[in-house]
Design a protein around this nucleic acid. Structure first.
Lengths: 192, 192
DNA sequence: ATCAAATGATAGATAATACTATCATATACA
DNA sequence: TGTATATGATAGTATTATCTATCATTTGAT
């Protein structure tokens, strides 16, 4: 059947994207030849699956956004936005770091309208959640939701990097991020 | 006199490095031609001042480290490491963001031994100060000095970016970083 | 087993960029 | 003013990477 064919092709595309993600994390300047080699396919075949380097990067970027959006909706579906929402979000996103990390560094992506739109789209519900938590008394109201969102992102990225470099255990990463985000690094804060 | 010549040449080199820094912040993929044009000089002249793109990047990186080191020693010379040390450091570094910002993104630099060594060298005294502040009871001791240092760096970078994009006022940036670093974003923390 | 689809190796076209060489002109200094 | 030095424009070389084209071989479905 033809759906078997297309399914196989889609699986192979996914495998290529996975390999590209994996390699680009280690070596952001990897060429398409490098990526093909790493994926274990010929360069010609790679070009049969992806239109261009630009398109590859865009797909990886949009894929990262998708991953975050899926995580968001899965968490959101559990219930209303409560005090644990951010905690759950961070815990769910940490293991996906490899897929998302290069988004922060790949500057070429920021020149894409589509990518910027996708990023804005995924950020909005998080910002909304932060606003809700500010109103609910969980987060400070003397900082903008924008700022808190950027700090959250920034902490996630640095944590992924630290975990990747083996400097902190992935098991303790989420807790560390949450603790730092909520209470900071000053001594004497009231925390549990 | 010949010192007048060399002084003029050094000044021009500085001007070129400044221009390169300025342009690369806006457009990290700028070519050497772009940089020469932006600096208002011919490409041939640019190559008379810099050996190669790699060397240019390395010089910019080492220059950024120098700037931080000068800031460190200036602050340190004022007195012992007290509770205000980190505050002063952040306040002094924020305005230098443009010179230092691209260090976080320029991945090619991380492949340089010399650059890695310089980064390690500049980080060490800050880490030491953090340790001292932990012992002194200003910073939590249940987080590693390494982690606190990375968070500090990360907050500085995100803040520079936000200031650069005009999303927060540069005047309030330092205060925001310090407040966030020390107390986090949770409501109800005891803070001044 | 057969046949269509997929693949890989290879060669090559195209483009971008770094870097060099040259020479006429401009600048600075004495 | 005269001279050494610096500069700019330009052309050219080398390298690298993207992307296309071709064809023999392999794979996979029926």
């Amino acid at each position: 059947m033809s759906s078997g064919r297309t399914a196989a092709k889609e699986a192979k595309l996914r495998a290529i994207l996975d390999a590209a993600t994996e390699l680009l994390v280690e070596k952001p300047t990897a060429s398409l030849n490098d990526i093909a080699e790493y994926a274990g396919i010929g360069i010609a075949t790679l070009h049969r699956y992806i239109e261009s380097r630009e398109q590859l990067m865009l797909q990886l970027g949009l894929r990262a956004v998708e991953v975050v959006e899926e995580t968001l909706s899965r968490i959101r579906s559990v219930g209303e936005i409560g005090d644990d929402y951010i905690r759950e979000l961070i815990e769910a996103l940490i293991p996906l770091g490899d897929k998302i990390n290069f988004l922060a560094n790949e500057t070429s992506l920021h020149y894409s309208e589509e990518m910027s739109a996708a990023e804005a789209r995924v950020k909005e519900p998080i910002r909304e959640a932060i606003r809700s938590l500010q109103s609910g008394g969980a987060f400070r109201e003397d900082m903008s939701a924008d700022w808190i969102l950027e700090v959250l992102y920034s902490l996630l990225f640095v944590t992924w990097q630290q975990v990747h470099e083996g400097r902190i255990a992935s098991k303790s990463a989420a807790k560390l991020v949450i603790d730092t985000l909520y209470h900071g690094v000053a001594a004497g804060a009231d925390r549990g």
